[in-house]
Nucleic acid binder design. Structure first.
Lengths: 196, 196
DNA sequence: CAAAAAAGCGCACGATCGGTTTCTTTTCGT
DNA sequence: ACGAAAAGAAACCGATCGTGCGCTTTTTTG
């Protein structure tokens, strides 16, 4: 069962790239099979249905997101520098790690926002979990910690700037998108850290 | 040529709703025809191809966006109150006017962000035009006017909060999304209007 | 009111969709 | 090294995709 795991990982990676560019529901099994260099029936040895494959693809993207953004900063002490590192890694996640097609999680959230179903629910849970992490992280910006409501608002703004960065950089092709998001986030931390 | 225009308008409206929910590229001609009470071939009397219909649908959505957001505030004097009205109308556009499926323009921008073609180009132009309007509007926040770079940054933040509102409200089902976006925007205006 | 034009339907086409079946090859535990 | 199990290929299924063609009905116009 070792060869199979390798191809399964390859399928998840290639299908993820295709879905990020063409959309999760606009990627056919033929597309994935061809890109992976195997036949359509070969895919079904690893997934029971297209829907099951989509779910694996999205969940795998979430796992890789956490590995990429969270893992390398979790050893840092909570506070401003870790927040800045998280933000920077998320900018990298969008522009570097997912250079072709952008962030699958973000585009899937838009595709799924009015499509009830288990996939939507699972992605919703993962994103809510991430929002809680960001809020907790934001509370640790000051000593004593920020109150929950203030931190939640700051987390909303932080997330908004990341969405704005993706929109400005990827669709509008604005070369300054990264710098704009970074500056906005820095100002957010400045005014949140010090009262008044 | 009067009856035809009415049905064409109906097609644009229904196709727009379907595309907002299911995605622009995931809406079949069968879906649109059935929703309009027409046959599939009947659609081709109004559009030369599916691609041409998609383009008309998106451009029509842009027109309706301008009518809904800009038209009712353009008689106000430029400044903070008009900026607040624009923001409020955009919140309404997302949650009230497009209650089912959300804003087609926003979701189309995500779908098209890595799909080169005339449709992407046309939507890009419309959104860039809108960004220019917002930047100009932001410059008029103070007297004397803000410098261009500051206004551009503020417009980026404003747009980010609207994206954050759509994400939080529609996908995350956060009931406080509207209030969060409004509060973030108000703070943005406060700190941008007064120096320091 | 008649002629012309527009609107719309039914049908069939080739391609592709997600998915299944049958069969061959490859891999792996023992 | 051998047999079982997994991996994969090829052909195929019914359904649906976008799109033409030919016809009828409705609407507009002279």
């Amino acid at each position: 069962m070792r060869k199979g795991d390798a191809t399964k990982a390859r399928i998840l990676a290639e299908a993820g790239r295709l879905a990020a560019v063409n959309g999760l529901f606009n990627t056919s099994l033929n597309d994935v099979a061809e890109r992976c260099g195997l036949s359509k029936s070969g895919l079904f040895k690893h997934f029971d249905s297209k829907e099951a494959m989509q779910e694996s693809v999205v969940m795998d993207a979430c796992d890789r997101f956490v590995d990429f953004v969270w893992a390398p900063v979790q050893h840092l002490p909570a506070g401003r520098s870790r927040l800045e590192a998280i933000f920077e890694r998320q900018l990298d996640w969008e522009t570097v790690e997912n250079a072709a097609g952008g962030c699958l999680i973000m585009s899937s959230a838009v595709e799924l926002d009015d499509r009830p179903g288990p996939l939507r629910d699972k992605l919703h849970d993962r994103l809510q979990q991430w929002r809680r992490i960001l809020t907790r992280e934001m509370m640790a910006l000051t000593d004593p910690p920020l109150d929950y409501e203030t931190a939640k608002m700051a987390a909303f703004e932080m997330n908004s700037f990341l969405l704005g960065h993706a929109n400005a950089g990827r669709f509008m092709r604005d070369g300054d998108a990264r710098e704009a998001a970074r500056a906005a986030f820095r100002r957010l931390l400045d005014r949140t850290a010090k009262p008044g």
